[in-house]
Simulated scan of single mutants.
Amino acid sequence: MARLTPYLSFRDQAREALEFYRTALGGELEIMTFGSMPGMTDDPAEEELVMHGQLEAPGGLVLMAADTPSSMPYVPATSGVTVALTGGPEDMDHVQAAISTLLDGATDVMPFDPAPWGDHYGQLTDRYGITWMFDVGAS
């Protein structure tokens, strides 16, 4: 079955960001570097940059990220694109724990509180400039 998966672009912070997200979300992290694939970079200083990183967190969440070597155009996080972490009442503790970690260095924080429609809702922009939205349904 096809699925939509967030794929985040960084200049040179993908490894650091993915490790931070693993701390927040849990799961297994796999990282492939440009240096591990012959011919992917001509610059020895860029061999340890992340060519492809994938975090498989509990509950089926997959978050991918990569660095952008100097030979490619860098496209930073786009305004209007948000990573959403959502769930039901059984996910409340997991979502609150993730938020607690992601708040470190975050800006534009909307507290995770009860919303008029009955869910708990909040959002933030993390230390890497990635916007997150959180929603936990009441039932």
Rank of each mutant, 00 (worst) to 15 (best):
M1C: 07
R3T: 15
R3A: 04
T5A: 04
P6M: 00
L8C: 09
L8H: 05
S9G: 06
D12W: 07
A14G: 11
R15Y: 00
E16C: 08
A17K: 14
L18V: 04
E19L: 06
E19V: 03
E19Y: 15
F20L: 02
R22N: 06
T23A: 11
A24S: 08
E28Y: 11
I31F: 12
M32Y: 08
M32N: 09
M37K: 15
P38W: 10
P38Q: 04
G39H: 10
G39Y: 11
G39F: 11
M40E: 03
T41Y: 13
T41L: 10
D42C: 01
D42G: 15
D43C: 07
E46M: 09
E47G: 14
V50D: 03
V50Q: 09
M51F: 07
M51Y: 02
M51E: 06
G53T: 03
Q54M: 04
Q54V: 04
L55V: 11
L55E: 01
L55Q: 12
E56H: 15
A57I: 02
P58F: 09
P58D: 08
P58C: 09
G60A: 03
G60R: 11
L61E: 08
V62G: 00
V62T: 14
L63V: 01
M64N: 11
M64K: 13
M64Q: 09
A66H: 12
T68R: 09
P69Q: 02
P69E: 04
S70R: 14
S71P: 06
S71H: 15
S71N: 10
S71Y: 11
M72I: 05
M72Y: 14
P73Y: 05
V75H: 13
V75M: 07
V75Y: 12
A77I: 00
S79Y: 10
G80C: 05
G80E: 01
G80Y: 13
G88W: 03
D91M: 11
M92D: 12
D93T: 05
V95A: 05
V95Y: 04
V95H: 11
Q96A: 00
A97M: 00
A98W: 10
I99A: 02
I99F: 06
I99D: 06
S100G: 07
S100A: 04
T101H: 14
T101C: 01
L102R: 05
L102W: 00
L103K: 15
D104E: 09
D104H: 13
D104R: 07
G105P: 03
G105V: 01
A106T: 03
T107E: 03
D108V: 03
D108Q: 09
D108C: 00
V109E: 01
M110E: 04
P111Y: 11
A115C: 04
W117G: 02
W117H: 13
D119L: 04
H120Y: 15
H120N: 13
G122Y: 00
G122I: 05
L124S: 10
T125G: 11
D126S: 08
R127E: 02
Y128M: 08
F134K: 12
F134R: 00
G137S: 14
G137V: 03
S139F: 15
